[in-house]
């Protein structure tokens, strides 16, 4: 699979926006060190779930912290209104702060959403 987009702004949402902060730092580090992502405009931010509607327009994909999985139904209706792909972060990746995996799933999420839009 080839990366077909040149911009990927990722929004992580969790309870207060604090616990995903560590994850954001980790993911940004990976982006900086990666040669293959150099040509892509990547932005990663964390916000509280309650503020999703304020920020959603500036982002391309939404990732939800697994600790607020129970709010996913509500969050995904918002995301659908703005036509943004949304997904819950894998619990294990989240627990082990596996920023690489989460970045990859964000890329896949975007690719699948774009592909789904075309077909």
């Amino acid at each position: 699979m080839k990366i077909t987009f040149d911009r990927l702004h990722i929004l992580l949402v969790c309870n207060l926006g604090a616990s995903t902060g560590v994850m954001v730092t980790k993911m940004k580090e990976i982006v900086q060190q990666s040669e293959k992502l150099k040509s892509i405009d990547i932005e990663i931010k964390a916000h509280p779930a309650g503020e999703l509607e304020e920020h959603i327009q500036n982002f391309d994909v939404i990732l939800v912290g697994p600790q607020i999985k129970h709010q996913f139904a509500h969050l995904s209706t918002i995301a659908k209104q703005y036509n943004k792909p949304i997904e819950v972060i894998d619990t294990q990746d989240y627990g082990t702060i596996n920023g690489g995996n989460i970045l990859k799933s964000a890329i896949l999420l975007k690719l699948n959403a774009d592909g789904g839009g075309l077909s």
């Binding site: 699979m1 990366i3 990976i30 060190q33 990666s34 040669e35 293959k36 992502l37 894998d90 690489g100 995996n101 970045l103 990859k104 799933s105 890329i107 896949l108």
Partner: peptide, 13 residues
């Protein structure tokens, strides 16, 4: 399957 999809992305991390 997810891991396979990750590998297909062919990224350097």
């Amino acid at each position: 399957e997810r891991q396979q999809a990750f590998d297909k992305l062919d990224l350097d991390f």
